[in-house]
Amino acid sequence: MKPIIPTTLFAALLAVGAANAAATDPVGYVSLGDTTSGNPAVKATTDVMLSIPLARPTEFAGVVASKGAGTITIGGNPGWTTNQWVPAVTPATPYLLTVTSGTEEGLFALITANTTDTATVTVIAGNLANVAANDQVVIAKAWTLGSLFPVGTAPTGTQVLAFDGLGVGINVPASQIYTMAPANWLQTFGGSGNANGTILYPGESFIMRTAGNPVASLVVSGEVPTWNHKTIISKLTAPGTGQDNRISYFSPVGETLGNASVPATTGDQLLIFDNSTAGQNKGASAIITKTPTGWLGTFGLTGDQSGYQIGGGSGYVYRRVPSAPAGDVTWTDEQGYILNL
């Protein structure tokens, strides 16, 4: 793990809130939604686009000894108990294994089983083939609806609209809807039942939708990621059809587009949504388009937008240009603040 961040440096870097620098991992908090002073985080009858800005606390750190087909073995005899990372509890408490060094830094995977030293994983973003011996890994709980937004965080009836990434084309509507009930999150579209254990992955984005009552504040506390941002940008069809991806940049603070290493094709667009305006199903307030030489504001913004900052718990739509080939591209980037840690 990276060393302690001095409190003053951390505050200067993140500018998002007080930091607890007593531990070895940098921690902090981030306000989500509408962060305009005096405004609620989510106005009544309003959508805001959100994402995960911080990791949950590290519960294990180790080094890769070897890898197999869907497995990673840790060196040094970590002494795990069987299925320690897949506890049989309800709601589910899923764990993520993240590679924090090496070629595949930023790879994260859902742990589906474990022995005393080997985790069976389902990779969410990254290529397991590139993981090598001596790469460092950490294990932490995944963010879930119930942990990111505990009951009472938002008024009962508040919804989270999620996107499964399988919707072809542009302007893709929600595929799952979760509603805050008095005792837990409840899936109300695309499935049913207690949804407290539903995973919210870094690099994705989702919508929080209020009904008649606003959400006063949304504050996320956690560990500052000290490993690369990594997510998948998909194109589900052959050239001819564009593709929307609900994405985010895994960072508590903004990163400029010009420094974010977006694997963009000319014509790709970043759709930006204004979390400070009221309303549901809001259209993009601004669009930034990839040009052969940079990023250009083409709606709501004009001129060079290479300095536009993404991250900090906001969500975006990344629209792949119709001419792009079908398939996934992996977006990996080292957050600028890591260089100062």
């Binding site: 084309g169 008649g212 564009g242 014509g267 083409t298």
Partner: peptide
């Protein structure tokens, strides 16, 4: 040219309609 690309994709569209609004 980018606007032309954008209009080319406008045919792709979908909507989600739900009939339950629990607690609201």
């Amino acid at each position: 040219s980018l606007m032309a690309l954008g209009s080319f994709t406008a045919a792709n569209a979908a909507v989600t309609i739900t009939f339950n609004a629990a607690f609201s």
